[in-house]
Design a protein around this nucleic acid. Structure first.
Lengths: 344, 344
DNA sequence: TGAATATTTGAAAACGTTTTCATAAAAACA
DNA sequence: TGTTTTTATGAAAACGTTTTCAAATATTCA
């Protein structure tokens, strides 16, 4: 691959001049410029981004780091795609890291990204008080939190109104006559799940429904397995719930699997509200009622916040709260009388 | 962030010695070593990967490039995860690029990756004759093709037996008495889809079933929309198919959506075989019969081939063909007589 | 015309490593 | 003891850029 030096030699100028032609950083004589440009084309010159990065001051390295729990979780792959579509237009490359919600992996990758001189890092923080992340902020590397918040430090953040999402989901069920409503939430402590559960509780309270601890189940949000098992438990309760609210896409799958295995009909036997509106949600039978998170847009917004900070490093951190949206499809229905008798 | 220079100063040695301690590249006095290590710890020294990369010869840059059509397609996110889990153990970072099957984007990202001095690139090639990719191979940068093949150049490659996948899917339907079997395949020309269709045709031929062009539909494999529309067309045919074979996960969703919209029962009214066994396939009702691609393992294998090539740059390119697997669930069933009469 | 200014260019330093080459000191050998 | 070998270390070059500083030439002004 051609270097500045080779171009300079071919054009009979110094590398300084070539650099100037490339970056337009100061005037060069028209004739010289043409000569250089011709040489660049002839040699198919492309600047070496590694050398540029080494030389560059912060914010100029054209590299962005992403640490997500798991790219196999479609919620995150949607976020990643939103980010990438924005960075694409800025000539940035993106380094992708999967943390599995594992603090050691997160720590490892934060070190790698620092060492790669990234211009910034976008991530859903694992800990609400992330020391490592705080130390990175101190270093002046822009951080954008997405999906979850950081408590102690003010940082650019994109989240959805999780409390409202939970509230809307459960209110919808209550409107349809449901009283025994179960929730599947995360056993790992994250602000997002905590708030969804708060919304669940508020909806119940506001409607005078007592909270029944047996209907609150905590499982691993990284896969559908525990959700399936917990749903098995829920369905074998003496008085099982007439509706289940699953707080992320994988747990929703676990619920569906268990319900189907039990030969129950949705929504006749049980109503389901999921979280995350993924492509399969509207394709299945019955189509799933769900809380839609604008994951792709969250990614876009996070990337935009990052670029705004590169532009203006001293601006106040911004917290963007996006709207969750209840999409009513056919997995929820009015509680029929027979069942009401049954369960009351 | 601390540099070699600072560590050297603190330890009262030259940067050469510090470098030697880090890399163990040659003997240093035990006492000196300890002094250096202490300084490294005190300063929390981490080597700068950018500088290392600039200095490194090829194959030492610890950076791998990935160009995939779309990370939102879960088949690819599974591949990416498989790759990443292997690179993680090798201290590699991964740059992720989405091409949308757009040759210009692919070209753009290939340039970026070259310019980033990646040690290698893993991708499903868009063109069977990819000039740009060939020129990268000439440069000596290892390429691993995954999911699709490259025709003119021998390259490390991981694919599945697509023809067999198509054949198995359709044979299964034929065994159940289906004769009017539709296929939804890709309008974009890729080796994978071409072969799946070949398998479809061979299964029909071997069973003496004539190929009906009206039952072969080509749609955009990047989303479910055209598949939905094409299924609408299929279902409104004078004598509609009794079974549909969808050749990737997104097209499968389109088929399901259309079928459900028409109020048809699966498998009573129509049988469906999908491609790709994603988490939702077994959770939906009825659970989906599908051809499973070991996407995660394909990614792992591709990454392993890459590392083997780094290890031994001159070894013969290897083509690994993995097995697709028919997973029979409940979206396919014996064709009942009534229908047989109807359609014959 | 001479001085001041603007234009155009290049040499060299810097970014943080690894590696080559040289050399001083220590150890081994005769 | 003098010579050779081994051990331990550092100076400097290199990777490919960008940027600072200086200088040479051309242009403008009085």
């Amino acid at each position: 691959m051609a270097t500045l030096k080779e171009v300079a030699k071919k054009a009979g100028v110094s590398i300084t001049t070539v650099s100037r032609v490339i970056n337009g950083s100061s005037k060069v004589n028209g004739e010289t410029r043409e000569r250089v440009q011709k040489a660049m084309i002839q040699l198919d010159y492309q600047p070496n981004r590694v050398a540029q990065r080494l030389r560059a001051s912060s914010g100029q390295s054209k590299l962005l780091g992403l640490i997500i729990p798991d790219i196999q979780n479609q919620f995150y792959s949607n976020i990643v795609r939103g980010i990438e579509d924005v960075t694409y237009g800025h000539d940035y490359a993106v380094i992708l890291c999967n943390s599995d919600e594992n603090p050691n992996k997160e720590r490892f990758y934060l070190e790698v990204l620092k060492s790669e001189s990234v211009d910034g890092i976008i991530l859903p923080p694992i800990h609400q008080f992330g020391e490592e992340i705080e130390s990175i902020i101190e270093l002046g590397i822009p951080i954008v939190c997405v999906d979850r918040k950081l408590m102690r430090k003010k940082v650019d953040t994109v989240v959805i109104g999780n409390e409202k999402g939970g509230y809307d989901a459960v209110s919808h069920l209550i409107e349809q006559g449901h009283k025994k409503i179960a929730i599947l939430t995360s056993s790992l402590q994250f602000s997002s799940f905590d708030e969804r559960q708060k919304g669940y509780e508020r909806a119940l309270k506001e409607n005078g429904i007592e909270i029944d601890k047996r209907l609150i189940k905590e499982g691993d949000p990284r896969s559908s397995e525990t959700a399936r098992e917990l749903t098995d438990e829920l369905l074998s309760l003496d008085s099982p719930p007439s509706a289940i609210f699953a707080t992320n896409n994988l747990m929703t799958l676990g619920v569906l699997e268990s319900v189907n295995k039990h030969g129950m009909q949705i929504p006749d036997d049980i109503s389901i509200v999921g979280f995350d509106d993924l492509p399969w949600a509207k394709a299945i039978s019955p189509p799933l009622t769900t809380i839609k998170q604008p994951a792709y847009e969250m990614g876009q917004k996070a990337a935009e916040l990052f670029f705004q900070r590169v532009e203006n490093p001293s601006r106040e951190p911004e917290v963007v709260i996006m709207e969750p949206k209840l999409i009513v499809r056919e997995s929820t229905a009015k509680l029929v009388n027979a069942q009401v008798k049954d369960t009351e």
